[in-house]
Design a protein around this nucleic acid. Sequence first.
RNA 1: GCCGAAAUAGCUCAAUUGGUAGAGCAACUGAUUUGUAAUCAGUAGGUUACGGGUUCAAGUCCUGUUUUCGGCACCA
Length: 579
Amino acid sequence: MINIKENEKLSVMNHSCAHLLAQAVKHLYPKALFWVGPVIEEGFYYDIDLGEDVIKEEDLAKIEKEMKKIAKDGKRIVREEISKEEALKRFSDDPYKIDLISRMDEDDTVISCYTQGDFTDLCRGPHVDSVKELKHFKLLKFSGAYWKGDAKNKMLQRIYGICFENEEDLNKHLEFLEEAKRRDHKKLGKELDLFMMSEYGPGFPFFLNKGMILRNELENFWYREHTKEGYEFIKTPIMLNKELWELSGHWYNYRENMYTSEIDERTFAVKPMNCPGGMLVYKNSLHSYKDLPLRIGELGQVHRHEASGALNGLFRVRTFTQDDAHIFMREDQIEEEVINLISFIDRMYSIFGLTYDIELSTRPEEKYIGDIEIWNKSEKALEDACHKAGHDCKINPGDGAFYGPKLDFHIKDSLGRVWQCGTIQLDMNLPERFDLTYIDSDGSKKRPVMLHRVIYGSIERFIGILIEHYAGAFPFWLAPTQLVVIPVNPEIHGEYAKELTEKLKELNIRVELDDRNEKLGYRMREAQTSKIPYSIIIGDKEMEEHSISYRKFGEQGTTTVSEEEFINFVTDKINNKTL
RNA sequence: GCCGAAAUAGCUCAAUUGGUAGAGCAACUGAUUUGUAAUCAGUAGGUUACGGGUUCAAGUCCUGUUUUCGGCACCA
């Protein structure tokens, strides 16, 4: 996937293309008013006020046709610098431009306009020299979008498009979009019987048997790796009473997203986060400075009432399992702990062939708690740890949580798409609210520092990402069905194939026998469409030699090895989690 | 929640201006005995998401609801 924003030339072209789009829209909808048309990673868009008019599917083609016409005409794009006064005058009948201009500082900003033929737009530029240069573009989608990105404002119409230097690149991008559609986890989840949705529970996914195998493998892997890293594990209740949520602050900050219920005339809430329960566990016993860092993990199922329009397959659901952990430690342990954590997360992601970038989100401008000094120290600790772990650390100013700064892990899948999964958050709020303490070496009570962290983020979302990352063809250790044994002639080879299947089952391999009365080609096709990693064919030759002929998913032809070699081959895959 | 679109058999999709809901795959039955992506024949399968309305007649038109999809806003 090409990031348009990071490519200077494409960035300028896409920006000019946004103007071309606006000009075409103006031709077709003379009353149209324009807000902004920026370049984004996936191309460009323009937010437009069409008054009573609404863009429809078929209009996109019309607009695109008009754009081609204008581009062919080949008008030059001319820059002009004007004063604020002149700008206000020139755009006096356009409330959107007035809004933009009046917020510009005359001393610092040069106000510039770009004109192409009969169309002028306020813009900082730069642009290509002529609309003639814009040939290889496509309008992709449209939707409503709040003015200034604020849900309180009215909705404008947004049209998205993308522009390339040549037809080949454009086609490559369209092919990428097709590929992404083929890999859609909602589609593959249905085809591969991994999970289902029901009208009776919008946003509450049902995991089917095959999806449960994925889940269980991911959870087992998680428990094993966390045990190695010195974690202990807990499970806290799904529902806790209102007083706890008042204490944690969720009742005031997160109430809208919480499911509540009256029980024995008291209010209970289903947990939207695991931390308050974790705090209670910490407080359940006394802690010595010698026990820190204390790492307490919980695969905790949370429920959040997400807006209906936000729901999206497994990516955005109303109940999900966080692979949560809370780490309690002394202040002087932050850096070392975070360094360890980063290398731990690195190890976890590399198993899946996922690369990632780390971003540091710092103190919000206004809404934050605690001393600025502690914030600065914490931010520095996270950043240093990140560098010492050998990673770049992009700063995301003001994007931290109100209770502390955080490191976010943005993973990149096999199509180059970026997802936010892991996060390490420093919390200066909850230890205070819950009055957490440990006994220091001098016998005094001290306040521990706390980290929240997740690696998968949400098991549901992570499974969604993995489905798309692998296009449903999971590595051997994760595949719901790992092997299928196909006797060439079930009447002749069926019994032997069955024995082999049982033998493999005893080794804890997820193997199925396909001895149906169907042609080999038919059963092989099914094995391939269900993306089973290896298909074993048993015929006369294999029976005689006691050998195994296997075909790898997606490849043609078979490899024949001895039974022992094959068992070593697959157990090695399971143990090392290799493809 | 907001803007737009959609919902027909288990799945993927047809059904002309309103005029008898249909196909392929899957399922089931039988024949076939198979060497690497679909053997043949037959059977069954539907309150067209749910409710209300217009009409002689509604999958089709109007309307309310639900759900899904693409975005926005929100977010793991």
